[in-house]
Design a protein around this nucleic acid. Structure first.
Lengths: 208, 208
DNA sequence: TGTACATCAGTGAACGCGCGTTCACTGATGTAC
DNA sequence: TGTACATCAGTGAACGCGCGTTCACTGATGTAC
């Protein structure tokens, strides 16, 4: 155990500073975007000397990864009960509540990854697992089939767009209507209008 | 008329250089993104002295606007006949053909605006007009109604996502299937599942 | 036609700035006696 | 308990770089005689 300074070990203070840098990384990326995340900018925001950046992170890529994971953890935490219950409406409701309360999460998880290759990589590593958990038995077909891929592409695009506009406040304030619309969109887009033209309609029950 | 140098007037050469800067601006933004567009980088790409940047543009914002307009002009040109004929399938088919041939257009018009405030502003100024022309009578309801806004948000998100993945090549190579899927998505998402729960289904004919 | 000159096109260096990264130094804290 | 010292935490300056922007200068071109 190292010598204590002002009641904290060196490890404690390092951990505090690390958490602080991630917090302000979330703030910077969540409000100004990925391009504003720099060693100096985040240290300035956190009120720490630049030295302490390198104490916890090799470069801004590593911090960005930590920022992404922090934002994702917030989302997972928020939707966990709903995912466990298998209620898609509740998942959307919980996510909408979170993003309403903290729009930075929306920007970090949904907006910035579109144009940033690093964040896109993190999304590809993490979102499929969450999506399968949330969508559950609604998923049918092989991911190699272009028709299936198109359905998913349209679905994710629609969901992302809805959440982004919801977070901006341009879709009104009725969270119930919003979550209901989202579940309806899932039903509409997952029902089979297959690309090969056979168009077997496999309408799924619209929960709640 | 100004004195001629090597067979061109000063105005001719200025216009050439301006066009050249826009071309390479399209290249830079279309392949590396908005953040890579700088005075020096675009001049380097175009093989011109930095002086000539300021000859045509006050700053990179002005060039970015020109780059956006150039990309949009390419799209408008490509879809114009289809829009005139009112055939939505043909509009999607022509757009898919263009973005397949020049993925930079997709990045400039669809990807980069998501995270860049300036490009988003240009999109808001220009896309509604094109969308109403292309979608025509498929549009119903007041833009103030959150239900209508949600429908459009979902629709645009789905269309954008599909085009982006199509351009990346991850949806296969069957352009007919792609355009068919897009028209089907429009039909699905514009059919009324209104947010107030009344859910009047106003199924529209799927053209072609 | 030939030459000397005026004009203008284009080059590249210069300036100040913020960046990522490193490190010498100050001063605060705990420890030994 | 009190003091002198060793250790370590944290500050801020320094370096080299690329940026946006400006401008002095070189040398190419057309023109006047």
């Amino acid at each position: 155990m190292s010598r204590r300074y002002s009641g904290q070990t060196a490890e404690d203070r390092t951990a505090d500073r690390r958490a602080r840098l991630i917090d302000f990384g979330v703030e910077v990326v969540g409000t100004q975007g990925v391009s504003a995340l720099g060693v100096r900018s985040v240290c300035r925001a956190a009120g720490l000397s630049q030295k302490f950046f390198y104490e916890s992170f090799a470069d801004t890529d590593v911090l960005l990864h930590a920022v992404y994971r922090a934002a994702l953890a917030r989302l997972e935490e928020a939707v966990a009960p709903a995912v466990a219950s298998g209620d898609l409406y509740a998942v959307f409701e919980a996510a909408a509540r979170l993003m309403e309360a903290d729009p930075r999460i929306c920007r970090i998880l949904l907006v910035e990854p579109v144009a940033d290759a690093r964040l896109r990589g993190y999304v590809r590593e993490t979102i499929p697992a969450i999506a399968t958990a949330a969508l559950g038995d609604r998923i049918v077909g092989s991911p190699d089939d272009p028709g299936v891929r198109m359905r998913f592409s349209a679905l994710f695009g629609a969901i992302i767009s809805l959440f982004v506009e919801w977070t901006e406040g341009s879709l009104g304030t009725d969270r119930d209507a919003f979550a209901t619309h989202l579940t309806a969109v899932v039903t509409q887009l997952m029902s089979g209008v297959s690309s090969d033209g056979t168009g077997r309609p496999q309408q799924l029950a619209h929960r709640r």
